[in-house]
Amino acid sequence: MAMIVDNRPTTGGTAAVPRASRRFQRLRQDKLLVALGVPGATALILFQYLPLLGNIIAFQDYEPYLGIAEAPFVGLQNFSFLWDGNPAFLTAVANTLILTVVQTIFVFPVPLLLALLLNSLAGERLKRLLQSILYLPHFLSWVIVVAIFQQMLGNAGMLNTFLVQNDLPMIEIIGVPELFKALLTSQVIWKDAGWGTIIFLAALAQINQEQYEASAVDGANGRQRLWHITLPSLKGIIILLLILRLGDSLSVGFEQIILQQGPVGAEASEVLDTWVYNYGIVGGDWGMATAAGLVKSVVGVLIVIGANKLAHMFGEQGVYQK
């Protein structure tokens, strides 16, 4: 439209003045449009971007009653947990990494398997019904999921009541530190495995059915079709999801863990996020906790960039293009 013509770069030394005035003219022309967007934009800047400035207290000896302006700068002192072998921090790092590895190995394949199973179902209506049931837990809050797990697997829960009534030994699951990571992992599977199938089912629906037909004519059996057609077609989406997963690898189930931390203790359950919460907001060590949060975000972004580079090296698209 007319605007495109106006956007041609102007030549000559007087360019700055007309460009500024044209901007102003455009703002006047679009003022109502901009006004419609301003409330949303304000909320986003206020709660997503301005708090980034608050990270400055990672370099301060911050006390809530003094405020950011008054607090003295202390250099990198708050980051000392990184090199002085702070045992609570090391426990949190270890638990976070173990959980990330365990959950990537055990959680990640489940939606893929479920999607393949659902996809092989012949009946469209049955498939829809099963999908509706399997998606449901995704919409429950962690409070509800944790409560349900307690009622099912707890010492007074359904499983153990059944075992005791049939003179079988009780199985203690909830509140046992050794089983805590397994419990967390199974909760994540229960809540989100069904939901995770959506993206795989969409990718499966895009595979050209004639490929299957042609390969069957050439004598490929079901397993060969899965291996040579289905899985290669899903490769891109699997890599994309793995990269996104890696980016989140330092955030493992904050709400989920904070709700269940009490009975099992910090040794088994403290992860980076809960450590920041417990030492910063509960414990009052604001500077150190903010520093830890900052390190965590930066490392998370670096991991995504690194993983994306890796994906490019293998000739995959990844999350963003080079």
Binding site: Q48, P51, G54, G280, I281, W286, G293, L294, S297, G300
Partner: peptide
């Protein structure tokens, strides 16, 4: 990216 727990 998210701003982090304590800054929020």
């Amino acid at each position: 990216f998210s701003p982090g727990l304590i800054p929020s």
